[in-house]
Design a protein around this nucleic acid. Structure first.
Length: 804
DNA sequence: GCTTAGGGTTTG
């Protein structure tokens, strides 16, 4: 970074010729010209990136009167790079400078009293010679590596070089950015600004190469300035969540469009955003690895928040929830995504909730089975809270990136009443004209779009509180029909040892004793370190239950003898039976083993047959349970049927409604409306169990594990349930446990090691657990507190089973 | 290196 000092102005290179400032215009070649003027205005240095800077200054012709009003006596200079930095350091207001190697462009300044042209000092030939009274004839000069310094004084040159280099280094580390008020933006300049966001669109694809964020900001000047941010990467765009957010932008270009000022990002652009709410922590939101933030920024944000909060004319971010939404309204919805499913190439279904209940009935949307990302159904209670959002056109791309569990804000969502026309989708009841559908229409007008909110967002925090409250209630109602837990006391000295479980929750809690848990009010979460004293049921196959997600009831698995009897009874009904019109029927002769009737009737979907997929689904009449099991090896789905009054019907729902390999599926008697119907298999590659069940009108039951454990520690004992997170605990699926001996053995061995049998020499291991307590009603209708193990998983290989 | 958009409801 060479700087040079000249002792006399005569050392200005001889090939340069002076010209007057008023003579500057575009056209002539100014390569060999210089101008001489007094610095009357000097902006702060603006850093562009690591080693690049820009600085604006105005100089006035030294030969003009100090107070001249002649617009052409002074001219604006834009200095770039190290020349700008050196100028900022060396030159003071009032200094006389000589400039050469400039280029001339039409001034962007609109005011009449300014010079119609401005100077750009950039590149290797741009030079500024300074002739201040204090620093006698200093010359700063930007120089290319090849430039000759033979016309500069060598001794002084070397001294100043060192000084400047070290000072310049310090300067870049504690750079002060200056921010322009929005009423003093000059077209053509590059500025840094702060503003309150009064309108914005999430980034959308421009017709060029970049995504575009469009926003409008204002500040204490009350000017409203539109901004367009073009960036190729979505993650680099400003993180805007709602109107009222505060944004700081570095290096935006002031330009003119349709008689108004607008801002566009330029090279080195960066943006940081802040929540605009008074009192919230001032936390910069940015994806940038490093950014500048100091106490001035803190103050700036707080000033803008305070000012903004008093402005009645600024838009207020809306806080509509599903419980307050009006039919036909457009609104922003903060919600959690539970599941999503493609509808067609220009439409995606988002199933969302915000934990509040919409007073208007919500449109139900049926989708192809097997295409849903996330659960395909929820508990009956939760289904009533779920809004089906249809997302169209340009928003499909963003929607495809979303994952169930994400917290979202959907901007300018339309609550559409009476909709029953959804492309490619059947509506449950077309007559339900007042049902609300939610549409995110195509386009970006009114800021229409979707944004994933971070977990730290205050609206997300609030939403999580509401949702967790609901889940707690949901659990309670689901547990209503399950056991109570009268606790009893025992005194046992604990042994000090490592836990063989770990908790997967994020509660930041210390462990408490079981007696402290018992003394606490219900509705809380506790962490405990315990042993298992006993458990029920001892016959672990009895811990397998069937649960209906729709009506939240639980039942035992049907007794095998009972199922055998149902099949046997069905096979004896030999009355005539007509096949449904859609079915192709046939007879089959089975070998004598396994035992059962020798003439079975088979029914196939003619549609599947025509596609050569007859192995995917078979309706089977007259077979024994053993025969069904055998045929299950050859057919993907087998539905046992019987003849009832000459019609083909399903067996009683206490028998399996569907066999898939070794797995049996049962239906809920309360929630099903069973009939033998042909599944809609058009375009389906493989027929799923869910598809068959839906065609049959059967609500499938889910296998669950339910155990009651008696826990103990030094303070006493406590009965708890292991249900909701039992699969997590054992690391085995209940459905596997129902069909696989290996999975059953795993559970048995685990329980055996956690609670060795009486008389065993094996020690009981210690377990860290997360317990949730809640209140429910016992059979007599009085309140009791139930404890359940949640978020707890066996972390180490289970100890060897008791050798004794 | 310097186009993109430049707020103001889909049409399902």
């Amino acid at each position: 970074m060479p700087l040079c000092v000249l002792s006399r102005s005569s050392q200005i290179p001889a090939h340069l010729t002076r010209t007057s400032i008023s003579a500057i215009c575009t056209g002539p070649d100014w390569t060999h010209a210089y101008i001489k003027g007094r610095v009357v205005h000097k902006d702060a240095l603006v850093p562009l990136d690591d080693d690049d800077f820009i600085l604006k200054a105005v100089i006035q012709d030294v030969d003009s009167a100090p107070n001249t009003t002649c617009p052409e006596a002074s001219i604006k200079m834009l200095l770039m790079g190290s020349l700008a930095k050196d100028f900022s350091r060396t030159v003071n207001l009032g200094d006389v400078v000589v400039a050469s190697g400039f280029s001339v462009s039409k001034s962007s300044t609109v005011k009449q009293k300014h010079h119609p042209y401005s100077l750009l000092l950039s590149g290797e030939f741009a030079s500024v010679y300074v002739c201040s009274p204090e620093v006698n004839s200093v010359v700063t000069r930007r120089r290319s590596p090849k430039a000759k310094v033979s016309d500069l004084q060598p001794e002084v040159n070397s001294v100043v070089t060192r000084n400047t280099a070290s000072k310049a280094l310090r300067e870049t580390k504690k750079i002060k950015y200056t921010y322009s008020q929005l009423d003093e933006l000059e077209v053509g300049t590059r500025v840094n600004v702060y503003g309150v966001v009064v309108f914005f669109k999430q980034p959308f694809k421009s017709s060029g190469t970049d995504y575009c964020t469009s926003l409008k900001i204002t500040d204490q000047s009350n000017q409203k300035i539109g901004c367009s941010i073009f960036l190729a990467k979505l993650e680099e765009h400003p993180k805007l969540f709602q109107v009222g957010d505060i944004i700081r932008m570095h290096r935006v270009k002031v330009s003119r469009f349709n008689d108004s000022i607008s801002l566009i990002n330029t090279f080195g652009f960066s943006a940081v955003t802040f929540d605009g709410t008074v009192g919230e922590p001032v936390e910069p939101r940015t994806s940038s690895q490093s950014y500048h933030f100091d106490s001035d920024d803190q103050r700036k944000v707080e000033e803008l928040r305070a000012w903004s909060s008093c402005q009645t004319l600024l838009p207020v971010p809306c806080s509509t929830t599903l419980s307050t939404v009006q039919p036909s309204a457009y609104f922003d919805l903060t919600c959690q995504l539970l599941a999503k499913a493609p509808i067609d190439s220009s439409c995606v279904l988002l199933r969302v909730w915000d934990g509040t209940r919409c007073p208007h009935p919500l449109l139900k949307v049926l989708v192809e089975p097997g295409v849903t990302d996330g659960p395909s159904s929820f508990s009956h209670e939760r289904e009533n809270l779920i809004a089906n959002v249809l997302v169209y056109d340009n928003h499909v791309e963003v929607a495809s990136q979303l994952k169930p569990g994400d917290f979202l804000r959907i901007y300018n969502l339309r609550a559409f009443p009476g909709s029953n026309k959804v492309p490619g989708v059947a509506c449950s009841h077309p007559a339900e004209q007042d049902h609300l559908a939610f549409h995110l229409h195509g386009g970006t007008t009114y800021g229409r779009g979707i944004k994933v909110l971070p977990q730290t967002n205050s609206a997300v925090q609030e939403l999580k509180r509401v949702i967790e409250g609901f889940i707690q209630e949901e659990d309670n109602s689901a547990m209503m029909e399950v056991w109570g837990t009268p606790p009893e006391s025992i005194n046992t000295m604990p042994m000090s040892t490592d836990s063989i479980t770990e908790t997967t929750c994020r509660h930041n809690l210390d462990s408490v004793t079981l007696s402290e848990v018992k003394r606490s009010n219900p509705g809380q979460v506790h962490h405990v370190r315990v042993q298992i004293k006993s458990y029920q049921p001892q016959k672990l196959h009895q811990s397998l239950k069937l649960f209906c997600d729709k009506c939240s009831t639980m039942q035992d698995l049907p007794d095998e003898d009972h199922v055998l009897g149902l099949f046997s009874a069905a096979s004896h009904d030999m009355g005539p039976c007509s096949a449904p019109v859609w079915a192709l029927s046939g007879q089959v002769q089975l070998p004598s083993e396994p035992a059962g009737p020798s003439d079975l009737s088979l029914y196939f979907s003619s549609q599947l047959m025509s596609e050569g997929k007859n192995k995917q689904l078979m309706f089977l009449k007259g077979a024994s349970l053993a025969q069904v099991k055998t045929l299950s090896a050859s057919y993907l789905n087998i539905v046992p049927v019987r003849s009832t009054g000459g019609q083909l019907t399903l067996l009683d729902l206490s028998a399996p409604v569907l066999f898939r390999g070794r797995r049996r599926f049962y239906g809920c008697k309360k929630c099903s409306n069973p009939a033998v119907r042909e599944p809609s298999v058009e375009g389906v590659e493989e027929v799923s169990g869910q598809l068959v069940a839906e065609a049959l009108g059967v609500e499938l039951l889910r296998y669950v594990l339910l155990l009651r454990l008696e826990l103990q520690d030094s303070s006493g004992s406590l009965d708890v349930l292991l249900w909701r997170d039992a699969e997590l605990f054992f690391n085995v699926s209940a459905a596997d446990a129902a069909s696989s001996q290996e999975a059953q053995n795993h559970i048995c061995q685990t329980m055996n090691s956690l609670c060795p049998p009486e008389g065993s020499k094996a020690r009981r291991p210690w377990l860290d657990m997360c317990l949730v307590s809640y209140q429910t009603k016992d059979d007599g209708g009085s309140n009791e507190t139930v404890y359940q193990i949640c978020h707890t998983t066996l972390s180490k290989a289970s100890p060897e089973p008791d050798p004794a």
